[in-house]
Design a protein around this nucleic acid. Structure first.
Lengths: 335, 335
DNA sequence: AACGGAAATTTACGCGCGTAAAAAATTTGT
DNA sequence: ACAAATTTTTTACGCGCGTAAATTTCCGTT
């Protein structure tokens, strides 16, 4: 930098200022710097730049499972928003492993990020660790809320969405049964089940829950196997199945197809299947999946907004914010 | 660190050595350090650690489109391998944008990574930029090879896989037509088309290519729209369709379903559809998709192996390595 | 117990940049 | 054109750690 300073005829402190914020120097000097920059292609050492700063301009993005297109899509959205806001996103996936999630937070802490956007694993998360982390670093949780953790949470209103689905399904046919994994990976599933039960009770319909075996993040496979098992056991009595999420529904659709069952709301259909999340692939299932859309755009937008607010203010934990968005019913052919 | 040194009764240079490689100090001192570490929870400043190192222990992973489950899966695999090898992976997605790909390389360069594993965008990539990058930093390209770029390439043998698919399809029914996008996003598609043509000629079958409109990475949607258009125009004369990749096939399956066509190789089926890549979702389409499996595990394993070799040796560009793996035919119900 | 080699300590300097303070130069307003 | 306000330069120090060289301490061996 010293060298580039003499080559460009600009003092080093001014260069330092420029690299930290190009707007902070006068237009004329900025032009001079940028012209010199083209000729000598110097770029500052980011490690030396950051070693004395309390925080960097990085924003950490942590998702539980990046191979899930749902999270991949949200991550993509968040990344681009961070860039637009002038920050550098760093993406991490916990790959469904709680110890990896802890490692990520530790590594993130030492990177001194300006803030972190995190979708926790859920049930398996080390809550105390996340709590400690979010005390030191501005952190917004999204997708899955764990018992009031963190400074803020942005997600969707599972109560609203399930009520809407139940109402829709009841109004257009038989009352739905709820299809879920035995061990809920995250709190959303529990909320959805409870919302289903409440919505059914409100309508005076008998609730019925079909629980299937399986653990891990291989939801489609679990849904297919569990679907077959439930078909075999004759558990789908009502003919309408409401799945706890789209990936499970995709597996169930596959099982139904393999059994020669016709899924849909039309004439001659055997069962109806609905999901939840508007997974990127739910548009392309056969038949296309009726579901509730999580508004990726609004969730990620709001998450970043809150985080930016958090980063500016000092009293981060004064009041925990919680924003829930309504889902939108996406009617397709499956129900 | 100075402070922690006096607290733990260990000299700072020894601590420095320990943090760089815990094995490099004597067992007894290592135990003392780790005991002190638990009490005082100190962790070194990564920026100060890295500023004087020529390279860090980071390995960059760059994929063209992370929302594509195919790349998400490979990225996941690579990340875990990097961790197992003692490196810290940093994941980037170009999101289909060439300028973003360039930005990522620039940012990566300033991070002084030990090496980079990169799946380029393909046609849209800034070749010269990638070339320059890979001259300075050990880089292994995978998935999509661009005209001999980089120090090494690991991918699959499109010639072998297409020949195998064509042979299988011809042997079990009518000869396939090739279904592809008008504008190929990456060289793999071109290779596959050419391999299709060659394989058909070798068998003495008449080749037929169905090109559909569309640009970008929204392959499923493009495949569906294009499928409908091709059905309308009566272009699918042979009744067997070989898609340039699985995502396109998923769209085509959706179109066929919407038209009430039965896809499969059984009695009473209208058309057969095959894909390529063994996309994570191809197992769950209706019917399940016949395709060629890219061996994720071997590709990522070999990529990292070569990269580690590259990192150790100095004469990186002496001979360009190129490793192609055979695909494995995955017979499912769609063809 | 003495010895030799390995490991740890002491001492000291450098890395590339942030940043503070005072002086100098430039721009702005009238 | 001149004073005031802003920006840049000069000077100097510090950050947290890497690392080299010389010295001392430790450990296992004979």
């Amino acid at each position: 930098m010293e060298e580039f300073a003499s080559l460009s005829g600009i003092s080093r402190p001014t260069l330092s200022k420029y690299f930290h914020d190009p707007e902070s120097v006068r237009h004329t000097t900025r032009d001079r710097i940028e012209k010199a920059l083209e000729e000598h292609d110097y770029q500052p050492n980011i490690y030396a730049m950051n070693q004395n700063r309390r925080t960097t301009n990085h924003i950490g993005i942590v998702v539980p499972f990046l191979a899930d297109p749902f999270f991949a899509e949200i991550a993509r959205n968040l990344e681009q928003r961070c860039i637009a806001a002038g920050f550098s996103p760093i993406l991490f996936s916990s790959h469904g492993a709680p110890d990896l999630e802890v490692n990520i937070l530790d590594s993130l802490r030492s990177q001194k990020p300006a803030g972190v956007l995190m979708a926790p694993l859920g049930r398996a998360s080390d809550k105390a660790h996340i709590e400690r982390f979010s005390r030191d670093i501005p952190t917004v949780l999204f997708d899955s809320s764990i018992g009031g953790l963190g400074a803020a949470f942005v997600g969707m209103d599972n109560g609203q969405s399930m009520r809407m689905l139940v109402d829709y399904l009841c109004d257009t046919g038989t009352a739905p049964q709820f299809f879920e994994m035995e061990t809920a990976v995250n709190p959303n599933v529990n909320r959805r089940r409870n919302a289903y039960l409440a919505a059914m009770e409100a309508r005076g319909e008998p609730a019925s829950i079909v629980k299937i075996e399986g653990d891990g993040w291989d939801f489609e496979e679990i849904g297919r196997r569990g679907g077959h098992a439930a078909f075999d056991a004759g558990q789908f009595k009502s003919g309408t199945i409401l799945c706890s999420n789209d990936r499970l529904a995709i597996g169930l659709l596959s099982a139904a197809f393999q059994r020669g069952l016709r899924v849909g709301r039309g004439e001659g259909a055997d069962i109806r299947v609905a999901g939840h999340d508007d997974h990127p692939f739910s548009k392309f299932t056969c038949p296309a999946l009726t579901t509730v859309s999580q508004d990726y755009d609004r969730i990620s937008g709001k998450s970043l907004d809150i985080l930016l607010g958090l980063m500016d203010s000092d009293d981060r934990l004064s009041q925990r914010q919680e924003v829930l968005f309504d889902g939108i019913l996406i009617k397709r052919e499956s129900a």
